[in-house]
Write a protein that binds this DNA or RNA. Structure first.
Length: 243
DNA sequence: ACGCCCACCTGGAGGC
DNA sequence: TGCCTCCAGGTGGGCG
């Protein structure tokens, strides 16, 4: 870990841990916040003294926090798309990471009309709009695909046409997918693990994601799941069930 | 302002 | 075994 960064956090106490979008906000006792993002391959794991001793550092353990009683928090990120950054609290709301971010999907006030309003006038495909964190935050490639499938909405559909009942249904499925995945400890495709190192198992419940060529799970549908590329990202969907 | 495309970086899987 | 290509949970920036 860079010495300069280490000296800035050494001896600090964590007051609270919050989250905005996919950024973790670790509030320190000196008026600074440590922003952390896991990117694609990042993980943060917690080790007690025995576990820390038994597991030597991995080459991708880029940041290691020694906390109380020999415990460690390790930030491991093979692809280094993640980030850690110290920002003064007063500068946080103005930071470029947070400017223009859309609403939190699990917020009670996020409903069909709220989503439709964010999509109004936008010609990009609904799939691309869902990945765009200024539409709403927290939805990535897996959950965009899964929510669209459950809502019966084609990923190619022009974003502005998702309104009314359709928008309400999509909001419902977004919330459902996120809550179920949280319940299952996330989706462990390759790198994701929970803080204790346990795998998530929401991936066992995917209807379409990473299932190209496999039968659509809708009873009686008979079509196979298809893959297409939108805005450079893989989209998985059923052409019969999603319109 | 919007929508698209690329870069960032490493590693795993599959083909030959 | 090795080498090559393709693909991967995200996002900021630059382009037309």
């Amino acid at each position: 870990m860079p010495a300069k960064f280490a000296s800035k956090v050494e001896g600090r106490t964590v007051r609270a841990i919050d989250r905005r979008a996919k950024y973790l906000l670790i509030r320190l006792d000196d008026g600074q916040t440590l922003i952390a993002h896991l990117g694609m391959s990042g993980r943060m794991t917690l080790h007690d003294a025995a576990s820390a001793a038994a597991h030597p550092l991995d080459r991708h353990d880029h940041v290691v926090f020694d906390i109380e009683d020999g415990w460690q928090v390790r930030f491991n990120d093979a692809r280094r798309f993640g980030l850690m950054l110290l920002v003064a609290d007063e500068a946080l709301p103005k930071h470029k990471f947070f400017k223009g971010l859309g609403p939190e999907p699990l917020d009670e006030t996020f409903d069909g009309p709220a989503l439709a309003e964010r999509l109004a006038g936008r010609k990009t495909p609904i799939k691309a709009a869902l990945l765009d964190q200024k539409t709403l935050v927290g939805v990535g490639n897996i959950y965009a695909c899964e929510a669209l499938f459950l809502a019966g909405i084609s990923p190619r559909r022009s974003a502005h046409t998702v309104r009314g009942e359709r928008a309400a249904k999509l909001v419902e499925t977004i919330k459902q997918v996120l809550l179920r995945s949280i319940d299952d400890g996330g989706s462990s495709l390759r790198d994701h693990v929970q803080p204790g190192g346990e795998l998530g198992y929401f991936q066992t419940r995917f209807n379409v994601y990473d299932r190209a060529g496999i039968a659509c799970p809708t009873r009686g549908c008979g079509k196979t799941v298809r893959r297409l590329v939108q805005a450079g990202r893989s989209t998985f969907y059923c052409a019969r069930c999603q319109r």
